[in-house]
Design a protein around this nucleic acid. Structure first.
Lengths: 246, 246
DNA sequence: ACAAAAGTGTTAGGGCTACACCCATGG
DNA sequence: CCATGGGTGTAGCCCTAACACTTTTGT
């Protein structure tokens, strides 16, 4: 199986095919992280430092070239794992970016966006990659200037995330199997950037029929909160291209 | 400027680049047409007959190869004009289809969807192309078996159309400058596939602030109906990738 | 006069928001 | 016992659906 390394994220060093359009796949990965000293969780994403021209040294979305024998979805998962060691709990195509001048050579990027559960990002398996200092987490609301058109891409992915959280249950993709309603509400508040009424939030998700209450409670500093799990019968994201395309 | 002809819609006759992934651009074009004998308008789309293998003789979405020096949007407009002679009033990227086996050779198709106004499709300029019998309109609800994965693509485009008509004013893309509320309602009814209450429909669009009443009326067999035009200040489709990407 | 579409009025119900209030636990 | 988050109750508002009703034209 042909594999690329983390260094072969889209680059202009065109060897054999300088006169052809090439297809790259990149992914915007979202997770919830609690920053040092911060009380509330924030939306964060991992970026990789480019080790080649163009934009050497700048931060960019993880990605790589599309292999001739793999689907777009598979390429997104593969490049994601190779560059960051992460395996997303949710992965969806975002948009195809194809402006002529977005890279020195002609590159069409099929961009995906993904969600990672909080309990997955501190696995031992992924830390070594982060330890190389070539992968780093950033607050989605305070990004540096990124390589290529990646700032615009992240902005659009954030818009899609905020939008979709309103009419689907993608918040599940950011939570462990069992969670309290406060956990879930925190996800929504981090994504939407505003506080939600706990009472109304409870009723909304309870009436949606997507949650199954368990017998377990999380005990803490105050009254124990009931743990819930998601109803697997309900689609993670209601409708979408993947459902239609069989 | 490099141009392809209507015959060069995606094909497997790979001459120089059989071992590389190629990028094609196709478009699902929607219009409202009143079928013979039918009382209600229906959603229809033009398809082109393939003149080469694979799938020679089958109907397919209009499209063509992406030129190395043109953006995806430009390629969609160009191939649309070349194959059907149509210039859409609305054009938006739909999805990138990249399954390995969707074509004998590796082709990634960036698919767009477009809307054409009823007053545009009977222009003299476009009829010659349709007269060749290689372009033909089909009822969106009764399509034959299409080439490649184009049936699935149309299904997804239809889903997107039905979805988007609910929260944006893309219906405008199917109407002439001036129209009655009954005209507008007919667009919604054709897209959604169900009748709408005229009274409630009127109040909804009036309260949305997107319509400007004119002094003119359309006289017909009954009480004259006021003509409206769209408020140009309001976005055609609120938010989207194109707005974010500058 | 009559049919039919244009346009107005009215009412009931559901969902959302704001906010008052009780419950249970750790300290 | 008190602070705090968990959890319940409730009233107002807005939007929508349903449908009765009036207006205006062509025939």
């Amino acid at each position: 199986m042909t594999r690329t390394t983390a260094d072969t994220t889209p680059t202009t060093v065109a060897s054999s095919s300088a006169d052809a359009t090439r297809v790259a796949v990149s992914t915007v990965i979202f997770a919830l992280r609690r920053l040092e000293g911060g009380d509330a969780a924030r939306v964060a994403l991992p970026l990789v430092r480019r080790t080649r021209d163009p934009h050497e040294g700048q931060w960019a979305l993880p990605g790589g070239w599309l292999d001739i024998a793999e689907s777009l979805d598979a390429a997104a998962s593969r490049t994601l794992a190779e560059t960051t060691g992460l395996a997303p709990s949710y992965l969806e195509q975002l948009y195809a970016f194809g402006a002529v001048d977005r890279s020195p050579t002609r590159v069409v990027s099929i961009v995906y966006w993904a969600l990672i559960r909080a309990d997955e990002i501190s696995e031992d398996a992924v830390e070594p990659l982060f330890a190389t200092e070539n992968v780093q987490w950033f607050d989605a609301a305070a990004l540096p200037r990124l390589a290529f058109d990646h700032n615009e891409i992240v902005d659009y992915a954030l818009w899609r995330l905020r939008n979709k959280v309103g009419y689907s249950r993608i918040a599940h993709g950011l939570l462990a199997d069992e969670f309290t309603l406060a956990d879930l509400r925190e996800v929504y508040e981090a994504i939407l950037g505003r506080r939600l009424d706990p009472a109304n939030f409870r009723r909304q998700v309870e009436n949606s029929g997507t949650l199954i209450p368990t017998d377990r409670f999380r005990t803490g500093s105050h009254r124990p909160a009931r743990l819930y799990r998601y109803n697997q019968d309900v689609e993670l994201a209601d409708r979408g291209p993947l459902d239609v395309a069989h």
